[in-house]
């Protein structure tokens, strides 16, 4: 994930740079690149005789977007997936944080629980989706649960690692001022874990949408995952593409929200040293 996040950081920075230097050559080159790709997508498949049901041209996808918007309640499906993603991400993050901090504080809890947490981490989380549907039925609940499971681990593990990595000299410093255990946590360990927590949140924000989509594949009649499966069943490839684009946007929005919050919380960090664990 490291390189991915470094890369996305760089992209973010270059977007900001581009926004400030809107007349720069790079901006025009970037736009030109996008136009070139879209143009190639529009005309090349036809030139090479690739049928539209394999790779629909951009114009077909745009038409499909309009059709879905007008006739298939596209915003409802997008809104449902978006809301489930956010709820799953928030609860998964909270659960991951609590687990990370509790295990980080208590050596005993870590020793007792870590083998099972490791097993859960290794188990493919999306495989739990059918199980949750059996338990909770065709509603939002199983989807959110899968997202929670997926989001949970990177955050719990990052927080736990950060708790282990807290400089013992800082803890001793607080102890010489007669700090209580709670003060050591809130004034040293918790703030010291922030960079790692945000690294975990960034990963989690891009994963949450996966859990939701897999849940929607399997059950229910709402959400972009459902639209995607319908599109596949009807052979409407452009419908599949519309769903993919919107799912990407949802993930991107969640990621940018975390990034914005990180910039705000970690404002004390030297520029360009934001953690990329």
């Amino acid at each position: 994930m490291t390189s991915f996040h470094e890369f996305s950081d760089r992209v973010m920075r270059s977007i900001t740079d581009l926004a400030t230097l809107s007349r720069s050559r790079e901006l025009w080159l970037s736009i030109a690149f996008l136009i070139a790709i879209l143009a190639a997508w529009e005309w090349l498949p036809a030139t090479f005789g690739i049928p539209a049901f394999i790779l629909p041209p951009i114009s077909d996808i745009a038409h499909e977007f309009v059709r879905l918007y007008a006739r298939e309640n596209l915003w409802l499906h997008t809104g449902v997936t978006f809301a489930e993603t956010i709820v799953g991400f928030i609860f998964g993050s909270l659960l991951g944080m609590i687990t990370g901090y509790v295990l980080g504080r208590s050596r005993t809890a870590e020793i007792i629980l870590s083998p099972y947490i490791l097993m859960l981490q290794i188990a493919p989380k999306v495989a739990f989706a059918p199980l949750f549907i059996i338990w909770f039925g065709y509603n939002a609940f199983p989807k959110i649960l899968v997202a929670i499971l997926i989001v949970f681990f990177p955050i719990a593990i990052n927080v736990l690692k950060a708790m282990h990595a807290v400089d013992p000299a800082l803890v001793n410093l607080a102890r010489t001022f007669s700090a209580t255990r709670a003060q050591i946590f809130w004034k040293i360990e918790f703030p010291a874990s922030m960079p790692a927590l945000f690294a975990g949140l960034r990963i989690g924000s891009t994963l949450a949408v996966i859990g939701i989509v897999v849940g929607e594949f399997i059950g229910g009649n709402r959400g972009l995952g459902y639209l995607l499966i319908v599109g596949e069943g009807q052979g409407r490839t452009s419908m599949v593409f519309v769903s993919i684009v919107l799912l990407t946007l949802i993930g991107l929005i969640a990621y940018l929200c975390v990034l914005g919050l990180e910039r705000y919380v970690l404002h004390y960090m030297p520029e360009r040293s934001h953690a990329n664990i």
Partner: peptide, 11 residues
């Protein structure tokens, strides 16, 4: 006590 490392909290 005061150590070689200033132990200032970066946040």
């Amino acid at each position: 006590f005061m150590l070689q490392n200033d132990l200032l909290l970066p946040w």
